[in-house]
Design a binder for these strands. Structure first.
Length: 570
RNA sequence: GGGCCUGUAGCUCAAUUGGUCAGAGCAGAGCGCUCAUAACGCUUUGGUUGGGGGUUCGAGUCCCUCCGGGCCUACCA
């Protein structure tokens, strides 16, 4: 038994996430966590809301609420959606927690003591009307290069030219539209990542098995131009983790907070500590996952994230932990994902384009979404959601191949033998062939899950389901029953056992349907099959079962067209 | 501008890292079955692997070039 620490990238607090966000980290990490638990490993699966930063303050202001209250509410909303999608976090924390504040301040202090923090005076644009410093992106104006009138302070979206906020003609606040802006001096802490470059470089080099998407981004940042740049880790905001605290080694940091990207990954640790608190456990309970001097040296730590998160997880966060010179557990494997597009374009919150998590659950049960998203997860390149593809996958894979198999077996048995596993007859060559094929495919399925090749795993799982239909066609119990009812009974006994096995193997992907299948088989035996032959003898003759409701209803053309229309955006 | 990824049957994807006639699923066609959600099974039609050039005994895979798609580029998170 291994110990596996799994973290999903933290969803940002300012609103409900769309399916692209879901598939980029939370969903695949959940499947991986469920699989590893099913295999008997000890798993700690952590996620949290990322609550600090300018967008949170703006969203709260827009909602007319204090930011703390807004975040508390949105955290609950996101937690509820996570439950709706059956995300099996051991803990869903908050980056604004006391634990994270403590840890973030502690790590910053350590970095300071180790000479890795520098105070830098910068000039930044301040908006009097908004009463805040504006990040470059929050300043808009006319592009000096192409004349586009909504260029952002960091880059013009129209001509793609890199800009400095002071380059803009007629600059204005993107928040209020105010033109009452001025450049002010402000002091910030910088993390001297450049001093850690060689250590980070060697560390990345040692990760031979990481996806190219992960390492190439890290390498680019390490070696591009002058190499890894120092990075500001504080901001002039109200909402966040205070930089000035008892024992802080810096003066003049009153009213400043740590940059959201500094404290967000630390919340992986913070949330594990929150988990311990919530369960009445002491510090050793979470430290054995995170401190290599306190038991974490045998932990395998796997992170899941979208590609936009890679630099922070390959460089900034490791720099924070390494620079502390304390024995923190570093990530062992980073699984990064590309983006999911929506029907020929991007998901867009502002344009109401695409399906968001709350809407998805209103329309269809979570298993439908889980199955489609996981079987199309953008592992190798960006992938695309289309309603036609979604409808075809659900109807064929879930309704026809799996759902209908359960239906035909249970209904046939009920009509010929009643709602109990039939007695009599014996297994023969046909059953052995099925055992052999499933054993082979199971080994492939497991190998794909170990390698976190989610798409390949779904293809193999589907093939395992299809074996059931092939077997039934070949064995033809409806014909055999007329001449040899005992043999027909054996066939159905075997098929009912297949249903139970499918429930066990499918659980990481479609947990609700898995539960429904186990309930129908009136069993709670869901041990991972070490031996397929034994697993298919679990339900004994005379064991009762029930015919379940339709496991997966088909999506009609009319329903598909309606949804297509509803989510196409403005 | 720079960097990275990507282009394989109508669609969604594979191809043991340079090695048999490039494979699956869906869609299409034909046959079979009738237990089942008009479901299932079997057979089958589709590809000069974006174009061109090169290296090699051998290229989807490596190199060059052109064309198309995408991402990142450090103050959004």
């Amino acid at each position: 038994m291994a110990r596996i620490l799994i973290t999903s990238a933290l969803p940002y607090i300012n609103g409900i996430k769309h399916l692209g966000n879901l598939v980029g980290s939370q969903l695949p990490s959940d499947t991986y966590a469920r699989y590893m638990r099913a295999r008997g490993h000890e798993v700690m699966y952590i996620c949290a809301t990322d609550e600090h930063g300018t967008p949170a303050e703006i969203a709260a202001a827009k909602a007319g609420k204090p930011v703390a209250e807004y975040c508390a509410e949105m955290h609950e909303v996101q937690a509820e959606l996570a439950r709706g999608f059956r995300l099996s976090f051991d803990f869903f924390g908050r980056s604004s927690s006391a634990r994270n504040r403590q840890l973030t301040q502690h790590l910053a202090k350590r970095l300071g003591e180790n000479g890795l923090i520098e105070v830098v005076t910068e000039k930044q644009v301040y908006s009097k009307a908004d009463g805040r410093f504006l990040p470059d992106r929050y300043i808009e104006g006319t592009c000096p290069n192409c004349g586009y009138d909504s260029a952002r302070g960091d880059q013009c979206e129209n001509c793609t030219k890199q800009l400095d906020p002071t380059d803009l003609i007629n600059p204005r606040s993107a928040i209020s539209g105010s033109t009452d802006l001025e450049v002010r001096e402000t002091k910030h802490l910088f993390l001297r990542q450049s001093k850690l470059r060689d250590r980070l470089d060697a560390w990345i080099d040692s990760k031979k098995d990481w996806p190219i998407l992960t390492t190439s981004i890290a390498k680019k940042w390490l070696h591009d131009g002058d190499g890894l740049q120092d990075r500001g880790i504080t901001r002039d905001l109200d909402w966040g983790i205070p930089v000035q605290f008892p024992g802080a080694p810096w003066e003049g940091m009153e009213g400043k907070v740590f940059y959201v990207w500094f404290d967000a990954p630390i919340e992986y640790i913070g949330a594990t500590a929150e988990w311990a608190d919530a369960n009445g456990l002491d510090d050793s309970a979470w430290e054995r996952w995170w401190r290599t001097d306190k038991g974490a040296d045998d932990v395998r730590y796997v992170q899941f994230m979208g590609k936009d998160n890679v630099p922070f997880h390959t460089l900034s966060f490791p720099a924070t932990l390494m620079g502390s010179e304390e024995p923190w557990k570093l990530v062992d494997y980073i699984k990064s994902f590309n983006y999911l597009n929506y029907d020929g374009g991007q998901f867009s919150t502002s344009k109401g384009r695409g399906v968001f998590m709350d809407q998805a659950l209103e329309i269809l049960p979570s298993d439908y979404w889980r199955w489609w998203l996981l079987s199309h997860v953008p592992e190798n390149s960006d992938s695309e959601f289309t309603w036609e593809n979604f409808q075809a996958s659900i109807n064929k894979d879930l309704a026809d191949v799996l759902g209908n198999f359960v239906s035909r077996v249970t209904k046939f048995c009920r009509s010929k033998f009643g709602e109990v596993v039939p007695e009599g007859g014996a297994y023969g060559a046909a059953e052995q062939a099925v055992i052999d094929e499933i054993s082979t495919r199971l080994a492939a399925y497991q190998a794909h899950m170990e390698a976190i090749e989610i798409r390949k795993a779904t293809a193999e799982l589907r093939a395992i389901w299809a074996v059931g239909n092939e077997y039934l066609q070949e064995a033809a119990p409806w014909a055999v029953f007329k001449t040899d009812p005992e043999r027909a009974g054996a066939i159905i006994r075997f098929a009912l056992n297949l249903i139970r096995l499918y429930a066990v193997l499918s659980e990481p992907f479609i947990p609700d349907a898995s539960r429904a299948m186990l309930d129908a088989m009136k069993t709670d035996v869901r041990d991972w099959p070490g031996d397929v032959s034994a697993a298919l003898a679990e339900l004994k003759p005379g064991h009762p079962f029930s015919v379940p409701e339709v496991l997966f209803a088909k999506i009609t053309d009319a329903a598909r067209e309606e949804m297509e229309e509803r989510f196409k955006g403005r």
